[in-house]
Design a binder for these strands. Structure first.
Length: 306
DNA sequence: TTCCAGGGGTAGA
DNA sequence: TCTACCCATGGA
């Protein structure tokens, strides 16, 4: 095995813990989070060295430490791919200045600033985020975790871990075969159609990373995909750092009812109205509001890291 | 058995 | 635009 140690620059307002705990992706394969050690693992394919294990942890001030293990020797091109993957996963290229300005002066949201919350853990590719989002629709969270684990078994192995399968690998499988392997039920044709669209070049979700692209245009493309409705579109946009749309799901409705709405069941328009004043940051404010009881104890436990 | 998950598609009003 | 129903699967 070959090892490479990298230090990747992070913005001053970056928090490793706040990003890793931002939502449930750390629990979906090929991500794996070691709670005790505070290390985020994932297996990733590199262009020359092939499958690699990435071990991400807080680095020195203003940096993230990444240890890479591969079976073959690493080249410069591999290090570049690792670096770009880490930037995407941890949102190191996000500017949250406007968000912190939007909630400045609000005592009940001061914790978001103090703990540098706001970056969302994402997958290196939009393909993987789309698949995982599809795997959160109309299913229990344990079902989502199981499905992502099964999906990841379809990718190549490295040191006991698996890389996420590519669109070409999924599109090469028959629907029946994919259904048996993933147990994703009626979502399987949607998954395969997504994989085929990317593999054929009809869809290029990676271009959605371009900050110049209009949010509504990205939403239009996501909503055109089978199996992707308003929740799924807003969730994928959230992972792109675009928070104009609210990813309202059953858990958000329930948490909002308890935490914000005095126990009264809200309509989705009630929730929309509540966060309308926060403009382009409304989805992020909503998410952190409802996730506070889960997120804050984790951040306090993890302590202030990078 | 029945219900329902970090919903979405469709038909019919 | 709104509502009712269906969709695989698995855990409670």
């Amino acid at each position: 095995m070959n090892d490479l140690d990298l230090e990747i620059a992070a913005p001053a307002d970056f928090s490793f813990a706040a990003t890793v705990f931002s939502h449930g992706w750390r629990r979906l394969a090929p991500f794996e989070y070691d709670d005790e050690a505070g290390v985020l693992y994932r297996a990733e394919r590199l262009p020359i060295a092939g499958p690699a294990v990435m071990r991400m942890s807080p680095g020195g001030p203003g940096s993230v430490r990444v240890q890479v293990t591969t079976a073959r020797s690493l080249e410069d091109a591999d290090a570049g791919v690792v670096s770009r993957a880490v930037v995407r996963c941890l949102g190191l290229d996000r500017d949250l200045t406007g968000f912190y300005e939007a909630i400045a002066g609000e005592p009940r949201r001061k914790w978001m600033i103090d703990h540098r919350a706001g970056r969302m853990l994402a997958s290196p590719t939009l393909w993987e985020d789309l698949v995982k989002t599809l795997a959160t629709t109309n299913i229990s969270w344990s079902g989502t975790m199981a499905a992502c684990g099964r999906l990841t078994l379809l990718g190549p192995e490295i040191d006991g871990r698996r890389c996420f399968p590519t669109p070409s690998e999924i599109s090469a499988m028959e629907v029946e075969e994919l259904a048996e392997a993933t147990r994703l039920g009626y979502r399987v044709p949607c998954l395969r159609a997504l994989a085929s669209a990317i593999h054929s070049g009809d869809l290029d979700p990676e271009c959605w990373k371009d900050p110049a692209l209009d949010t509504d245009e990205i939403a239009r493309q996501i909503l055109a995909l089978k199996g992707f409705g308003p929740y799924a579109a807003a969730n994928v946009l959230k992972l792109l750092g675009r928070h104009e749309r609210l990813a309202i799901d059953s858990s958000v409705r329930e948490r909002f009812r308890i935490l914000i709405n005095d126990g009264v069941k809200p309509s989705d328009s009630d929730i929309e109205r509540c966060y309308e004043p926060f403009g382009r940051w409304r989805g992020l404010v909503m998410w952190l509001d409802v996730m506070k009881p889960h997120l804050l104890p984790n951040l306090e436990k993890a302590g202030q890291t990078t």
